[in-house]
């Protein structure tokens, strides 16, 4: 049967596509895990680097990533939720809303290196924050904003209209309804989105290239105006700078594994949470 043959061939092709995708991405994880694992040790995670980046650990690098990410989320979260609340709860359907929607979509599509330049021109230079945690966090925060808005929007839209009406029918005000009923109900969904964007932000390199990251700093960052080492930038820097490429490469493997583990763990956790929420409500 010719029909059946072409069908089987086609389906086999699709299967190959799926397999290749999983294998290609799986092999990246595998190689980095296999080679990075030997570098990992307790001291690698808890010590500061020394001997021109060829010895010691990456503790300040991990801490730096943590600070920058935390700062970015602290900046983007309230703004993102407020924006989503406006779009879902307050906005009459109008041109204004469309303009806001379009700008969110386009902001989400801006290349990350462009965010970096924006941060350089505005936060580092114009506001004079210098190359610092603050500049990096603000830059990454803007990058995370569209992600947080759309996940918060999704969570707010999932709140049934009927319980909004119930609250209003009891004499609650609009803001009272949002604060007491809508936001608490949407909270798990919003959190899931936030966790997902933490994963994304923690792995971004280009935006912090000129706004926050340094190849080497002595010890831990001291204030929000300090330069920091950050995991993603550190991997890049270890591969391209410094005087001992071979020794640095081993550390780069370790950093990659740590970053990969962090990001996959955070994202995996968020995806797991979302899956569970969907099966609870849907």
């Amino acid at each position: 049967m010719k029909k059946e043959f072409s069908q089987n061939l086609g389906f086999f092709g699709l299967f190959l596509c799926m397999l290749t995708t999983i294998l290609a991405l799986g092999s990246i994880i595998y190689f980095i895990a296999a080679r990075g694992f030997s570098v990992l040790s307790w001291s690698f995670l808890t010590q500061v680097p020394y001997s021109a980046m060829t010895k010691g650990g990456i503790a300040p690098v991990i801490v730096g990533t943590f600070y920058i990410t935390l700062g970015a989320i602290m900046f983007a979260l309230p703004l993102g939720i407020a924006c989503a609340v406006y779009l879902c709860e307050y906005s009459p359907k109008s041109i204004v809303v469309n303009i806001i929607r379009i700008s969110i979509n386009n902001l989400a599509g801006v290349p990350s290196v462009v965010f970096g330049l924006f941060g350089l021109a505005v936060f580092v230079k114009f506001f004079g924050f210098g190359v610092s945690i603050l500049s990096g966090s603000l830059t990454l925060g803007i990058l995370a904003l569209p992600m947080i808005i759309s996940s918060a929007q999704e969570a707010l839209l999932a709140v049934p209209q009927s319980i909004r009406e119930a609250s209003l029918s009891l004499g609650a005000t609009k803001w009272g309804t949002i604060k007491n009923i809508v936001l608490p109900t949407a909270l798990p969904g919003i959190l899931t989105g936030v966790i997902l964007s933490i994963g994304r932000v923690a792995g971004e390199t280009a935006p912090i290239l000129f706004t926050a990251a340094a190849f080497y700093t002595r010890g831990y960052p001291k204030s929000v105006f300090s330069e920091v080492m950050a995991l993603p930038y550190h991997i890049y820097a270890l591969m391209t700078e410094g005087a001992h490429p071979d020794k640095q490469r081993a550390i780069a493997y370790g950093c990659s594994l740590v970053l990969l583990f962090l990001v996959l763990f955070i994202s995996g956790f968020a995806i797991f949470l979302r899956q569970r929420q969907r099966s609870l409500y849907g």
């Binding site: 990246i28 980095i32 390199t205 930038y233 991997i235 990659s256 970053l259 990001v263 995996g268």
Partner: peptide, 24 residues
């Protein structure tokens, strides 16, 4: 199973891809 895995793979940082490209 596969859909979440694909989504998870989308979150691998670009610098890790770059690193993989360089070393492997």
């Amino acid at each position: 199973v596969l859909k979440p895995i694909v989504e998870l793979l989308a979150s691998i940082p670009s610098v890790v891809f770059g690193f993989f490209g360089v070393v492997i």
